[in-house]
């Protein structure tokens, strides 16, 4: 496997990125390259700073240090409008899709709202594009008129991804999308992420469950206390973990008796 952290073509590139929250630097010296069609996993225990990284990458954490480039343009220190090209191309899917969806908006309205906010043409509930996006996340287009309360947890998580896809992004950042789901449903979502990657979407997937990663991501970064302690190709990091944190995360995966 080629080293995914080098070479040209990274759409989003962080170099020595530091993120401060309330005066404390919670993430330091992060190097990260995201490109369309490739998937990277950011793993680590609770409190490692995983979600802070995701928030920083979409401009929700103002206190940044180092370098963050989108399509070659520097964003650290740039004015707010400098982030605009990124807003549409990089979409975030929140951990708790149930809470992230407005309970008063139907699936169609939620997707439409995402487009309106980005200044894109609106989608009606019966539009072909809307049906196509819902089919892409394996949801029945007939669900377009449902409210979030009438959907299962797995369906809501898919709506969260569909809403991100409605913006037509090149990169999808997903914050533990499987953590609230049954194992069988979680695997169905993993299959969906694999398909999206195969169709050209770039993915950064935050998780603490290493068992979902083989065959799903190309590169794994292990974050502990705000620093990357181990990184490399998936087979290498998960197959022969070097750092104690990576080993502990691997050993903590529940395993069926042989």
């Amino acid at each position: 496997m080629k080293d995914m952290s080098e070479g040209p073509g990274a759409l989003l590139r962080a170099r020595g990125l530091g993120i401060s929250l309330g005066g404390h630097e919670v993430v330091t010296g992060l190097d990260l390259d995201l490109r369309p069609g490739a998937a990277v996993a950011l793993v680590g225990p609770s409190g490692a700073g995983k979600s802070a990284v995701l928030r920083a990458l979409v401009g929700l954490e103002p206190a940044l240090r180092g370098s963050l480039q989108f399509a070659g343009a520097e964003l650290v220190g740039a004015p707010a409008r400098g982030w605009q090209p990124l807003r549409r191309s990089v979409q975030l899917c929140w951990q708790d899709a149930g809470a992230a969806l407005d309970p008063h908006l139907t699936v169609a309205e939620a997707l439409d709202e995402a487009r309106v906010l980005l200044g894109l043409p609106r989608w009606r509930a019966d539009s072909a594009e809307l049906g196509e996006v819902l089919r892409r996340v394996a949801l029945d287009p007939a669900l377009a008129t449902r409210l979030p309360g009438a959907l299962s947890g797995g369906q809501r998580q898919r709506v969260g991804i569909a809403r991100a896809l409605a913006a037509g992004p090149a990169l999808l950042l997903a914050d533990e999308p499987t953590s609230a789901l049954d194992r069988p449903v979680a695997w169905a979502l993993v299959d969906l992420l694999r398909q999206l990657r195969a169709s050209g979407l770039g993915i950064l997937w935050v998780t603490h469950d290493l068992s979902l990663l083989p065959g799903t991501v190309d590169e794994v970064l292990v974050l502990a206390d705000g620093e990357v302690v181990e990184r490399g190709a998936t087979e290498q990091v998960l197959g022969a973990p070097q750092h104690p944190i990576t080993r502990a995360l691997r050993a903590a995966v529940p395993r069926l008796p042989a």
Binding site: P184, E235, L238, G239, P254, R255
Partner: peptide, 20 residues
């Protein structure tokens, strides 16, 4: 349930890591 648990076995077949 068994199939979902078995899919996780892919993790253990990667490399020959020393178990903690």
């Amino acid at each position: 349930l068994v199939a979902a648990a078995r899919r996780a076995d892919a993790l253990w077949s990667l490399g020959v890591a020393k178990e903690l």
